[in-house]
Design a protein around this nucleic acid. Structure first.
Lengths: 245, 245
DNA sequence: GCAAAAGTGTTGTCCTTACACCCATGC
DNA sequence: GCATGGGTGTAAGGACAACACTTTTGC
């Protein structure tokens, strides 16, 4: 189907009409909240800040901000992440919108939750502010607003995604041992895995590059260090078909 | 951690402060768009309306509306669905928020896409309006706004979900033949499946109830009709662990 | 009797699971 | 030499993929 060309004056009029229409729409405040995951001491952690709202004094809150005018949602999430951590080029994905009318005591605020994964030990990571902390997810029982619900949703999302996509490597140093990788999976999924089968599984994928380096400063036999072959993974992504529920 | 009780006057003050804060937040229009899937003539279809915006005259648009004050997002999606189809108690799930500044020609409008599955032949389905149509998803190449992108995201979402959860039954009559079920999977996934393996797969799940009824009015050997055992499924949901990418 | 789809089983391959012992290193 | 975790192989069972013929019904 081809449309006839619309002359410029008419197009202007139509856009003017569209703008007038949008003016009549009700408006709500819109924020982004980032659930920033890290992995440290074999624990899954999130980057949190003490709530700046007096009403939630002492409680932890997610890192968030409004979405600016003319800013893409993804860009807003990146901006928040960069402002708070100093790191760019980080894994980030939208998870879910939360918009319960009562979720903010000051009136309705819609928030879109983004999930981010980064390596806590990364050199570029740069957390100035005093009251920003890495908090173990298992120790979180209370948070400001509905942020515990948001964290739970993101954790569930992560548990699922990490089994289907090689996200977990974003939480590890560039070079890591198989033990670290397994600890990561066990921490996120909350289960224990058979070591031999775990190693066989990753060996059979042929997506780990042997760096010919070994762990340093460990008080036992050092393990080999690997890198994940993102390039190869991208080329051979599996087409996933299999009914299973 | 226990907090000391806060006296009522102080609490009022804090809430007042919170409200004052939220007043300062920038606001944007917020809508919900519903991608309503149906299955008819062995094709996956979506319920669409001709755009009411002059600028997109003749193009199809998703069914959407603003979110009302004090309305849960999920409730808003249900409201839109009910208004347009007459059906309640329908599968509905949030898929993704779309908020590109340029997605609406009249200015920034955030929309949250919801995905719904219903049975086109269901008696309660009640579509009055003339310009609302079931459109085959494979015939969609152009839509108003960014709605084609939204539809694509929902289709991808559905392809994934239908393999992991028994959603597909929402698109079929209560009683259905295995052939219909297979056609549904093939249409949604865009692949062909081995008939014997497909039947074996569902037989081994033990989640189909044999109704002892047969297809009527078919010009060949009639097939058995089954119902899905939602109750049993809910009881025995599999705990899904398996790294695979 | 013919067209059209229903219904059914077997085999080989692959993946997953369960499980136990020796090895390298630091102390 | 001992503690700690690294590294490896095998066998059994289960799931999946490939594949062809007979049966029932409408016309």
């Amino acid at each position: 189907m081809k449309n006839l060309p619309i002359d410029a004056a008419n197009a202007d009029q139509l856009i003017h009409d569209a703008k007038a229409l949008v003016q009549t729409y009700p408006k709500v405040p819109l924020t982004i909240d980032c659930v920033i995951f890290g992995f440290e001491e074999n624990k899954l952690k999130i980057l949190l800040i003490k709530s700046d709202l007096e009403l939630y004094k002492g409680k932890f809150s997610l890192l968030g901000d409004f979405v600016h005018d003319n800013e893409e949602l993804d860009d807003a999430a990146y901006r928040i992440l960069k402002q708070r951590t100093g790191m760019g080029n980080v894994f980030l994905d939208q998870v879910k919108a939360f918009g319960s009318p009562a979720r903010h005591p000051g009136g309705r605020v819609i928030t879109i939750a983004y999930c981010s994964l980064l390596n806590i030990q990364h050199h570029a990571l740069n957390i100035h502010e005093n009251d920003i902390k890495w908090v173990s997810i298992s120790s979180l029982h209370e948070m400001a607003f509905d942020h515990l619900e948001i964290v739970t949703a993101c954790h569930t999302w992560l548990q699922k995604r990490i089994q289907e996509h090689p996200l977990g490597f974003n939480l590890l140093p560039e070079k890591f041992s198989l033990r670290e990788l397994q600890n990561l999976y066990e921490a996120i999924l909350g289960i224990t895995l058979d070591r031999r089968n775990f190693r066989k599984k990753f060996a059979s994928m042929n997506l780990l590059i042997d760096t010919n380096e070994m762990e340093q400063d460990v008080s036992h036999r050092p393990g080999k260090l690997y890198q994940f072959n993102f390039e190869k993974y991208e080329k051979n992504k599996r087409k996933w078909v299999g009914i299973d529920f």
